[in-house]
Design a protein around this nucleic acid. Structure first.
Lengths: 336, 336
DNA sequence: TACCTTAAGTTAAACGTTTAACTATCAGTA
DNA sequence: TACTGATAGTTAAACGTTTAACTTAAGGTA
C-alpha cells in the first residue's frame, strides 16, 4: 500500500503553497491566476490526488454522510424508502450509513451513539416508539422522521402519510363493496403509525353505523407468518368475517395463504385489503387490493428535506416541516 | 449547538495530560493508576464526552467503516445479504455505507471514488461484469467479492455459491421428476453467476442425454416483469415445454402469474423451479420449488472475512480466501 | 511623489486525536 | 551509596486539511 498523495505533494511539485492548492480544490479560486489553476489541476489529475475527508471534516465539521435508521431492511417496505433516500443523497454528494434496529431499543440506542460518534450530518429515522422521545435529546444533529410520527419536538422535519385517513378510505371502500363483517389483522402496535391505522379502521366502521368490536382486531407483527397465524386464531374462536383489512401487504399475503389452505376463496368468500403496495402485491394470486404508499418518494423527500436543512443551517428558523404525502387505493382482485 | 466536549476538556478537569485520557479511552492503561483511571472515566461519563472519530481516523488511518456495493437493494435477494453483513459488521464495531449501482458502470465507478475518498477500510462488492476487472486496481483497500465472481486478482477474498453445480442439481431434479422439455428463463447475462447457471442447466441436459437448444433459453433481467414477458415470447414462438427453470425467484413468480392467466396450471401442466429462495417464495401459490442460497450467511461471512483481513493486516500472506457456501434444493409445490 | 487598489498569492493556527520517546519518583538491592 | 527497574505519567510531533489574516508587487491616480 503506497502512501496517499497529499496536498503537500501537489503544492511542492507545483511550487505553490498548500493553501493555494486547497483553494483551487474548493473552487475558491477568485485570487488564483488561470495559469497556476490549470497547472495545479493537471498535477492533481496526474498524481491521482484524492482529498482526505477525515482531515477536511476535522476542520469543517461536516462529513457529507447521513444515517438511515430503520427497523429491518429485510421487510420489503423499507428497501424502496432506502433507495429513494440514497438516490437523493448521492445526487447531493452525501453517502448513507444504514442501521437496522429490529425495533429494539437497545440496538437503536447503540446506533444513535455510533452515528453521533461518526458525526453524520443528519439522520433519517423510522423510530421505534417506546421511550423514543427521550433519546432524541441526545442528538446535536438534525433528524427527519419518516413513516412513523412522534411528539418529539427536537426534530426538524417529518415525512409521513396520513395513515388514519388512508385506512379509513380503504375500509370505507370495503363497506361500499358490500362487505359486512370486516376484521383487522394489525401489525405491531408499538408505533403511532399502527395506532393511526387502527383509528382509521374504527372511524370507517363507526361512520357507516357498523359495530366496532375488539374481538375482530388481532395485533401481532408485520410479517407474513403473523397473517397466516392470525387466521388460525380467528378460526379457533370461530369468528366469521367476509373481509379482512391487513396492517400491511405481508400480513395480507400470509392471510391469503392460510385462507386458501382452508378452501376459502379470495375474493369470493372473503375480501382482502392490504397496506403499502409492495413490489410483489401485484404478483400474488389474486393480485392484492391495497393502499399504496409512495415509498420511494418518502425516502427521497426525507433526504431532500434533511439535506436542505443541513446545508442551509437554518438554526433559529427551525421550520419543522411536515410533509404529508398522498396514499392511493389500488384496486386489484383480492376484493370484489 | 454547543461545542463538542474534547479530550482536552477532560484532561484539564482531571488534572492530567491529554495523552493520559487518550490511553484510558483506548484501554492502553498499563501505566495508569487505578485512581486516575476511575477519575477520568467518571468525568467522561459526566461530561458526555464522545471521541471524535475524524481526528482519530486522521491519525490511525482506520475508519471502522466498510462499503457495500450492490446492484439494487430493492431486489429481495440483496436485503438479506445486506442484513447479514451489517449484523456482523456492527458486532465488530463497524458501520456500513450502502451503494446501489443498478449495474451501471458509471454509478459503480462513482461509488468507488466516493468510498475511496471516505477511506472505508474495505469493501464488499457484488460487481457488475463489464470492464469491472480494470477498476479494482484503483483500490488500495481490501475487497471481498460476493455473489458474483471475477477473474480479478487484486481481490482478497470471495464468498460465493457454486452456481453451476446448484443449477445442475436443480435441473437434474426436474428431469428425474419426469419433465421432458425444460426451458430456461435467465436473468441478465452480464455476470459470471448468470453464465454459470446457464452452464449448469446445459450440463444437466447433456448428462441426461437431452438436447440443449438455445431457442429454449430466454435472456432478460432479474425482475418479475421479465418472467411474465418471457412467457408471452415463448407463446409467440409457439414453443411448448413442460417445465421452466428460472434465473431467480422473481422471474419464477412472474412466469407463474403469466401461466395462470393463460389457464396453464403449475405444477400440473408446467413445473417451475426458481433460484434464491427469497422470503416470499413460500407464500406464493403454489409455493415455489427453488434453489436456496444462504443469503444472510453470505453477507455475514463476507463481512467476517473482510474484517479479519482488515484487522490482521496480513499484507504479504494475502490468502485470497474463497468461501463456497452450500445451496439447497427446497422442494415445494411448483414442481410435481 | 505619495498613496491607494487589486491581483495573486503565503503564513500559520486550528481541528481532536494517537503514539513514540522521554521524565520523575520511589522502592529494592548489591 | 549508586544503580536498576517499575510505576505513572508527560511532551510534542504528526495526521491532512481549511481559513482568517497577512504580504508583496504591480498598476493606477491625484
Amino acid at each position: 500500500m503506497k502512501r496517499q498523495v497529499t496536498m503537500k505533494d501537489i503544492a511542492k511539485e507545483a511550487g505553490v503553497s498548500i493553501a493555494t492548492v486547497s483553494m483551487i480544490c474548493n473552487n475558491k479560486d477568485k485570487n488564483i491566476s488561470e495559469a497556476t489553476r490549470t497547472r495545479v489541476l493537471e498535477l492533481i489529475a496526474k498524481q491521482g490526488y484524492v482529498p482526505n475527508v477525515m482531515a477536511r471534516s476535522l476542520v469543517t465539521k461536516k462529513t457529507k454522510t447521513i444515517g438511515l435508521i430503520i427497523p429491518d431492511i429485510t421487510n420489503p417496505f423499507f428497501p424502496e424508502i432506502a433507495r429513494g433516500a440514497e438516490d437523493m443523497a448521492s445526487k447531493s454528494g452525501y453517502s448513507v450509513i444504514y442501521c437496522n434496529t429490529d425495533d429494539k431499543i437497545k440496538r437503536q440506542d447503540n446506533y444513535i451513539k455510533i452515528l453521533t460518534e461518526k458525526m453524520v450530518d443528519g439522520i433519517i429515522f423510522a423510530h421505534s416508539a417506546e421511550k423514543a422521545e427521550a433519546d432524541f435529546n441526545k442528538f446535536r444533529i438534525p433528524i427527519v422522521l419518516i413513516d412513523r410520527d412522534s411528539k418529539a419536538d427536537n426534530v426538524v422535519g417529518r415525512v409521513l402519510v396520513d395513515n388514519e385517513a388512508a385506512s379509513m378510505a380503504g375500509v370505507s371502500y370495503l363497506i361500499q363493496q358490500g362487505y359486512k363483517k370486516i376484521a383487522y389483522i394489525a401489525g405491531s402496535m408499538k408505533t403511532k403509525t399502527a395506532q393511526d391505522r387502527l383509528a382509521g379502521y374504527r372511524r370507517a366502521l363507526m361512520e357507516h353505523g357498523m359495530p366496532y368490536d375488539l374481538k375482530w382486531v388481532k395485533k401481532g407483527s408485520y410479517r407474513s407468518q403473523w397473517g397466516y397465524d392470525a387466521i388460525q386464531e380467528f378460526e379457533k374462536e370461530s369468528l366469521s368475517f367476509d373481509a379482512i383489512f391487513c396492517g400491511n401487504d405481508l400480513i395480507a399475503i400470509g392471510a391469503i395463504k392460510a385462507l386458501k389452505e382452508k378452501g376459502i376463496y379470495v375474493p369470493k368468500d372473503v375480501g382482502i385489503l392490504g397496506f403499502d403496495d409492495v413490489y410483489l402485491a401485484q404478483m400474488t394470486t389474486p393480485p392484492l387490493t391495497t393502499i399504496r404508499q409512495p415509498k420511494y418518494e418518502m425516502g427521497y423527500r426525507a433526504a431532500e428535506l434533511l439535506i436542505n436543512i443541513i446545508e442551509k443551517e437554518k438554526k433559529q428558523e427551525e421550520k419543522k416541516e411536515r410533509i404529508i404525502l398522498d396514499t392511493e387505493l389500488v384496486i386489484r382482485q383480492s376484493t370484489k
